[in-house]
Computed example of a mutant assay.
Amino acid sequence: MARKENAPKRERRERGSIDPEEIIKGAFELAEEIGVDNLSMPLLGKHLGVGVTSIYWYFRKKDDLLNAMTDRALERYGLAAALKHSSDDWRTRLHDHAHAMRDVFLKNPILCDLILIRSSLGPRNAQLGALEIERSVENLMREGLSLEDAYDSYSAVQLHVRGSVVLERLHEKNKAEDSAAQAYYENLIITPDQTPLLAEAAAKGRVGGAPDEQNFEYGLSCILDHTSRLIDEQKNAPTSAAKRSRSATKAPATKAAPRRRAKSAAGS
């Protein structure tokens, strides 16, 4: 019986023959095959054909490598370009911003794993992230919101985006490990007899609790509607206060008039 030939091994490279960019590139190649969670320095060394010490020379620990990968991923997948403001209208801008973030993360699982799940951000991109939040909060404050309301509104959008993306990504990971794995909303037993409303909604394409486009858009609209109400309240607040102030100024004069007429009548 003929022996099965092993896959050709990559030749061991000489020490010092690899640079950081090549290590990062190799890390992405390996992560595409085995995922970020399973990435390790020994496996990466084997993939690149170098001793693990050659990798540690540039990256002292795995977190350092992941941070460098995140920096490259942000450039590679164009997250910054996707988040450029698309409109002068605050609602359209924030709506497009949320969808752009979600689309980039959904299309690039490694970026999702690095940033949203592992939170592997180097100092440079951590600062850029803070500046993006600062700019978004400032734009909302220009519409009349207080710092607290502007910050809470943008935080709600961020949480909504990240929550929906991470839920979908974790579902994909579970499916990869076990093809029969199902999310809780896929396990629900819906029948026309016992749950007629759910059955009717399902027939119309609704999936309760799923991080799909329909539910994402509905949740985002609710956040934007609430933010819009806060902005309207702030715009109307000065007018209401001015009316109350004018009414309070006129009130004493109205009460004083009868007294003056009473004195005049007594004198006559």
Rank of each mutant, 00 (worst) to 15 (best):
residue 71 D to A: 13
residue 38 N to S: 12
residue 243 K to F: 07
residue 13 R to Q: 07
residue 138 E to V: 05
residue 140 L to P: 01
residue 94 L to K: 03
residue 72 R to Y: 11
residue 60 R to K: 13
residue 111 L to C: 08
residue 69 M to T: 01
residue 135 R to F: 08
residue 211 P to L: 06
residue 222 C to K: 11
residue 185 Y to D: 02
residue 138 E to R: 13
residue 226 H to E: 06
residue 132 E to N: 15
residue 160 H to M: 09
residue 110 I to S: 08
residue 254 T to V: 15
residue 171 H to K: 15
residue 97 H to N: 14
residue 12 R to F: 00
residue 233 E to W: 08
residue 207 V to H: 13
residue 231 I to D: 00
residue 139 N to R: 15
residue 175 K to C: 11
residue 230 L to H: 00
residue 268 S to V: 11
residue 133 I to D: 14
residue 212 D to R: 09
residue 236 N to H: 10
residue 10 R to C: 01
residue 38 N to D: 09
residue 173 K to V: 11
residue 202 A to S: 13
residue 18 I to H: 05
residue 172 E to I: 06
residue 5 E to W: 08
residue 164 S to G: 08
residue 179 S to Q: 15
residue 66 L to F: 05
residue 109 P to D: 05
residue 163 G to A: 06
residue 143 E to F: 01
residue 41 M to H: 04
residue 137 V to Y: 03
residue 256 A to I: 14
residue 206 R to E: 13
residue 42 P to C: 00
residue 214 Q to A: 12
residue 14 E to V: 09
residue 85 H to F: 09
residue 203 A to V: 08
residue 11 E to M: 01
residue 114 L to V: 06
residue 190 I to C: 06
residue 171 H to D: 08
residue 116 L to A: 07
residue 253 A to H: 12
residue 209 G to V: 08
residue 206 R to K: 15
residue 225 D to Q: 02
residue 148 E to C: 04
residue 255 K to E: 14
residue 25 K to F: 09
residue 247 S to D: 10
residue 268 S to L: 12
residue 5 E to T: 11
residue 231 I to V: 07
residue 37 D to C: 04
residue 99 H to L: 10
residue 16 G to A: 10
residue 119 S to T: 13
residue 75 E to L: 14
residue 11 E to P: 04
residue 92 T to Y: 02
residue 224 L to F: 02
residue 164 S to C: 13
residue 144 G to W: 03
residue 129 G to W: 07
residue 18 I to S: 04
residue 68 A to C: 05
residue 85 H to T: 11
residue 228 S to F: 04
residue 31 A to F: 05
residue 154 Y to E: 07
residue 78 G to V: 10
residue 54 S to W: 04
residue 40 S to R: 02
residue 134 E to R: 14
residue 171 H to L: 14
residue 249 T to I: 15
residue 265 A to G: 02
residue 128 L to E: 14
residue 168 E to K: 15
residue 81 A to V: 15
residue 69 M to Q: 04
residue 173 K to M: 12
residue 8 P to N: 07
residue 87 S to V: 06
residue 159 L to H: 15
residue 96 D to K: 06
residue 112 C to W: 01
residue 75 E to A: 14
residue 144 G to M: 03
residue 151 Y to P: 00
residue 63 D to C: 03
residue 181 A to W: 15
residue 258 P to S: 07
residue 45 G to S: 07
residue 122 G to I: 04
residue 260 R to Q: 09
residue 66 L to Y: 05
residue 244 R to E: 09
residue 110 I to T: 12
residue 226 H to T: 09
residue 79 L to I: 12
residue 107 K to M: 13
residue 72 R to D: 09
residue 147 L to S: 08
residue 84 K to V: 13
residue 49 G to W: 01
residue 220 L to Q: 03
residue 103 D to N: 11
residue 118 R to E: 11
residue 215 N to T: 01
residue 97 H to C: 08
residue 11 E to S: 02
residue 57 W to C: 10
residue 18 I to Q: 05
residue 36 V to K: 00
residue 220 L to F: 05
residue 195 T to G: 04
residue 101 M to F: 15
residue 45 G to A: 11
residue 30 L to N: 00
